[in-house]
Design a protein around this nucleic acid. Structure first.
Lengths: 338, 338
DNA sequence: AAAATCCTCGGAAACGTTTCCGAAAATATT
DNA sequence: AATATTTTCGGAAACGTTTCCGAGGATTTT
């Protein structure tokens, strides 16, 4: 476990420590032959520069923190893969933490990462994050942060999101064009940016087509999980207020609703049509397959990473908001046989 | 972005740097009042010890590396959550990397983590890892490693696995007791420890009940994904060698097989029964629901973390192999209506 | 041949901590 | 009151690098 240090190499070759450093950092002021001699000897001894010492010296860690609410669903893992795809080739390490949809652990995560001197942060906020003063403090210290997917508008950082409004509008309109009229929306947690955008997309589509869109059409399922969808659907059944169709805030909620419908012998898409959001692997497995919006997860991660990299390299923050485009996956759950 | 250091606090209070350090590390040789005075002032100035400097000094990072083949399926994320559950309260950071089922990137990951001075490593190997000399080198340097799930026997480290053999045996026997006779096994990649264990469990159960178990009963699907299951099933259909039942090496493979069966109007479980392994969320969504073995993922992560902690704290390696117990989830796909 | 320039390298400070050693001050012991 | 002991603290070295400054020798220019 004894590590070999720069001094060992220097002593072995009878040169100074600084020369070794020069060799490893490819500085201009070193003779090519000594460089080669050093590299050979270093390899021989199994020397690797100690990154901790380098970080202390350079006041830079080459670590990037990523905080996500969960990684049980495929969404965040895919985004993270995109982030790594950009950052790792640039020599960065990606430290991942999960907040479990809890604002408090989220704050703890961020503090830990910051105190561990990550050079920047990429974050998607938990469903119940409201207080942002700590994040504002960080931004004032010029600490680079990029938000994606679940953003907080008032934080002045680069952001990358899907155009949730537009796609929600399109999903709703798709249901309308299929002839569904009494459509309800299973909406997501109220503090989440995309919940609001998707809700607005739904409402506007309904209004455009002059369909009824009163409070009863908007069901708050409180969460984003399969169980939340189940509960929402069960409630509708209990109240005997069955709609024509459902636009769910995301796939798991849609899935849950479908499972309850199937248990109650409600025919999909004949009696009730349904579309989800954010394609999951489950959407192809369930029967009938679930119409959904596919998000460019990998690209979302790449974009967020690039934005961070830009700020890291230039030192200037550009609080742009990048909207990515999704794709509409029309499957069986929303297409009526004519 | 200018960080406040220990010197700033010292200067501000007119005491020495070492006293500040003592205060923060709760040493015995400091007066209580000065300690309080220091802590108050530190908070006032917003001082936090620089962990990089601490790590350099202590030659210890409090970082643990975790390398997994993927985290698209729920399995590894769940295990990681278990790992974090133990390690984070102990003050460790958990750095996660994914190898994408590729031995080469896996090796790269491990090297990066090692060079970044993680204190230990928890790893589940990729499907095509065969060369282990680098890992052996690390072990000889007394670098702590714990393996889980996908292990390499000849590496002398603590290991935590499911009792794959026993559960595969039970799964197969379950099919037999349901009256299935012509049973095939979709086996996993041949270098994977659990592939072999599950295969052996299958074979032994077949032999015990004196059922035919020739080469034709063992189908190598080459991978662990939905597509591999699809291909395996398609091949059986093309060859017109349909079995009574299938025991698949894992859930995605089983899922793929089911999807092809359904596309070909093969009735499950009447014509063909099927059981998977390692309960996934998909197993409840597909129809009919898939009988499977549930692995204690969270506990597996906790156990691996505890083993590592033990070695870290005691400094001695105990190459024990811990077998965890699963649970058998009997659902529709393997239960014949009588 | 003297002066100017360039190339290569060594020495030392710095990054922000912890810890060992010893000294001064406070307290206890005789 | 003198000595011994304990408590509390400061100074300095150390962890392993990078980088600035400057010096010596080699090379080029005049």
């Amino acid at each position: 476990m004894k590590k070999v240090t720069i001094k060992d190499v220097a002593a072995q070759l009878g040169v100074s420590v600084s020369t070794i450093s020069r060799a490893f950092n490819d500085k201009y002021d070193i003779k090519k032959e000594t460089r080669e001699r050093i590299m050979a000897q270093a390899k021989e001894l199994g020397y690797n520069p100690n990154p901790i010492a380098q970080k202390l010296q350079q006041n830079k860690t080459n670590n990037i923190g990523v905080v996500v609410p969960e990684f049980r669903n495929a969404f965040f893992p895919d985004v993270i893969t995109g982030i790594q795809d950009i950052l790792i080739p640039k020599g960065y390490q990606v430290l991942i933490m999960q907040s479990n949809e809890n604002a408090e652990t989220e704050l703890g995560n961020v503090k830990t990462l910051y105190n561990n001197m990550v050079d920047g942060l990429i974050i998607s906020f938990s469903a119940d994050t409201q207080k942002v003063n700590y994040y504002k403090d960080l931004l004032e210290k010029d600490f680079p942060i990029v938000q994606f997917n679940r953003i907080i508008d008032k934080l002045q950082t680069p952001k990358v999101v899907l155009d949730d409004y537009a796609w929600a509008f399109m999903a709703t309109e798709h249901l309308i064009l299929q002839g569904y009229k009494n459509i309800v929306h299973f909406k997501g947690p109220k503090f989440l940016s995309f919940s609001l955008a998707r809700l607005k997309g739904f409402k506007d589509a309904m209004h455009k087509h002059k369909l009824l869109c009163c409070d009863a059409q908007i069901i708050d399922v409180h969460g984003l999980d399969i169980n939340d969808g189940k509960q929402g659907m069960q409630m509708l059944i209990d109240k005997k207020q069955l709609p024509d169709a459902i636009f769910a805030v995301n796939d798991p909620v849609a899935l849950g609703a479908m499972m309850v419908m199937k248990a109650n012998n409600i025919e999909i898409p004949d009696e009730i049509g349904i579309v989800g959001f954010s394609e999951s692997r489950l959407s192809d497995v369930i029967e009938p397959s679930l119409t959904t919006i596919k998000q460019p997860t990998f690209e979302m991660g790449q974009t967020a990473a690039k934005l961070l990299l830009q700020e890291l390299e230039s030192g200037i923050r550009v609080s742009q908001r990048i909207k990515l485009s999704g794709s509409f996956k029309i499957k069986q759950s929303s297409v009526r046989l004519r």
